[in-house]
Design a protein around this nucleic acid. Structure first.
Lengths: 264, 264
DNA sequence: CGAAGTGTTGAAGGGTTTCAAGCATAGTGG
DNA sequence: CCACTATGCTTGAAACCCTTCAACACTTCG
């Protein structure tokens, strides 16, 4: 069966459709080059820094993170990967991965042949546009994180991260109405925000005591999203999601047909 | 005359050739779509945050910076643009620029029709590869900056920045043997590093008194590059420059011929 | 000559880190 | 069933890096 039509691939298909006019022909051609599904345990580095391999990896289930460990032993996480994200999109253009990638939860990834994908990108303009746009958005997110790390306080950084995660998870239908599951440990959050785990703990309690968030057992609830956005100075435009979702919620032949009709 | 053969375009051509197998046919086709050269005064915002225009801009002369101003008035510079850099490469894929771009010195930019460039990218694989790789490297640099901002001290950040600038300027033949012209003010450096101008001042003096750098009248000299790299923990692999320059130093018909021959 | 921009220096304050300890939970093996 | 361990969360106190505020020197320029 066409792996892209399986429910597990829904977030990835969603992202492709949000990124560009991604028609049924694009979807079919992408599905045709196939993929190998891999399960990865939590806390396992499944992409190593160094020479790239022959595959491109799409995160289907679970959370992952790019990371860099400095000589003094401290770790920075410059990118969080959510379902639908491409783990090593830069490997399309570069011969070396600059960062390791680790699973933060149990994870399922799809490994796609890099050579076949490059050939497909050359041939199929919809695939080219979608992948290109996903890469551009990733750059925008990385730049936004640099702004946060450079000029925002711990409170603001934390609030900003939570706002971003909420919006990104919504885009792949993985957020609830007023919150989501946040599988990160406080130490992982610290490595994202450039803080210590101790200070993340205090900052979380700070937000909690102000009634801005509720967080227990990795379940985050945001009672007043506007308030949190205000504190963070969050403006989600940099995520470049479509204004109104031009994408059907379900994945399947009828969904594809609708897209194909719209593109025709 | 073919504008890409003018000396002013040399850094851009250099970058394209470093990025991929960029042959004479690619060069000629890129030159054919033309460009409008613009001069911009220092401290002028020449690309505004917001809806993109119809042009893509290449920085030919001078230094520029992407910037973001937060509600509290503080500014962060998430990217420095040097000769040969594309100022708004994300505008190829996105409809909105997420940051303003300002000239840090008097600047010359080449404005290229976005539509024509996109058509050329679709048609000419060498151009596609070069531009794609430049975008990927930019993402790698942005990510590296996030690591610096998150996990390095002021001394390390400053040293790292200087190391990166040295290597990037070398790549476009704009660095001397043991230093380069650093046109930035201390406040601009601060906005890059996520610090205050006062602390940049003290940190510069700190590096000076340790004999790691000399800096007077915007002329930077690094007596012992290895020492500076060591302090910064700098590893230039993330810039993804070719191991040995596969690119002739001069720009012109003979240079192009050599490249074309190598590619054939 | 006055104004504006840049670099420099001092002193005080604060946000964050560091170090340390304690608590809770889950898993493991005796 | 109960140590025993490992991991993650929490809290306190002291130290530190960097910021803030302020003042002054220097240069350029109208």
């Amino acid at each position: 069966m066409n792996w892209l039509q399986r429910p597990i691939a829904a977030p990835f298909v969603q992202r492709l459709r949000q990124a560009a006019d991604f028609g049924s022909a694009d979807l079919a051609s992408l599905a045709a080059i196939g993929a190998e599904l891999r399960s990865v345990d939590s806390n396992t580095n499944f992409l190593a820094e160094g020479p790239r391999g022959g595959a491109i990896h799409v995160l289907l289930e679970g959370w992952a993170a790019r990371f860099k460990i400095l000589v003094n032993g401290s770790r920075q996480i410059p990118a969080l990967l959510l379902p639908g994200d491409i783990c090593d999109i830069d490997a399309l253009h570069l011969d070396r991965l600059d960062w390791g990638t680790t699973a933060l939860t149990p994870v399922t990834v799809a490994a796609i042949s890099r050579d076949k994908l490059i050939q497909l990108i050359d041939r199929q303009s919809g695939v080219r546009a979608a992948i290109g746009r996903m890469a551009a958005v990733e750059n925008a997110v990385a730049t936004q994180w640099a702004v946060c790390l450079g000029r925002r306080s711990a409170r603001e950084r934390l609030a900003h991260l939570l706002c971003e995660l909420f919006v990104r998870l919504e885009a792949v239908r993985a957020a609830g109405d007023s919150g989501f599951t946040l599988p990160l440990t406080q130490e992982e959050i610290a490595d994202v925000l450039g803080l210590t785990a101790v200070h993340v703990n205090r900052t979380l309690q700070n937000l909690r005591s102000d009634g801005l968030i509720q967080l227990r057992d990795h379940r985050l609830t945001v009672p007043d999203m506007q308030a949190l956005r205000g504190l963070a100075g969050f403006d989600g435009l940099y995520l470049h999601l479509p204004d109104k979702e031009r994408v059907a919620g379900s994945v399947g032949p009828e969904g594809s047909a609708a897209i194909a009709g719209a593109a025709a």
